[in-house]
């Protein structure tokens, strides 16, 4: 085996699907979704920092890397992520809500 690092491909073989009349909208959707993910990651990181600050008073970067939430905290995080996705993508829910209200 060579020690050359392996780079796995990001693009899957086959035609990329489009759902909107203008494929640029599909591209924007992909970008926004990735941004949403990254913001969720940032929330997680901030939360880890806050919790570690509470705990230690000092932050070490290595502590952040190895920090793993316990079950109860993971439950809280799961709920927070779920609520967050619900807010960002709320536009998709609004029509159904209006139909149910009418």
């Amino acid at each position: 085996m060579s020690d050359k690092p392996v780079h796995l491909p990001l693009r899957s073989k086959g035609k990329r699907a489009t759902f909107y009349k203008d494929p640029a909208v599909d591209q924007l959707f992909a970008i926004i979704t990735m941004l949403t993910q990254e913001l969720s990651v940032a929330f997680d990181r901030i939360e880890t920092v806050e919790r570690l600050l509470d705990k230690n008073g000092v932050i070490k970067r290595a502590d952040i890397e190895k920090y793993k939430p316990d079950d109860q905290e993971e439950g809280e995080r799961t709920k927070r992520r779920d609520d967050y996705i619900g807010r960002v993508f709320n536009i998709l829910h609004q029509e159904a809500e209006a139909l149910l209200d009418s």
């Binding site: 993910q37 969720s40 997680d44 990181r45 952040i64 890397e65 190895k66 920090y67 992520r81």
Partner: peptide
């Protein structure tokens, strides 16, 4: 998995 990698995975699961 590094901290942010786990976090991305959790996001995808929640999503």
């Amino acid at each position: 998995h590094a901290h942010d990698e786990r976090s991305r995975q959790s996001f995808v699961s929640a999503f």
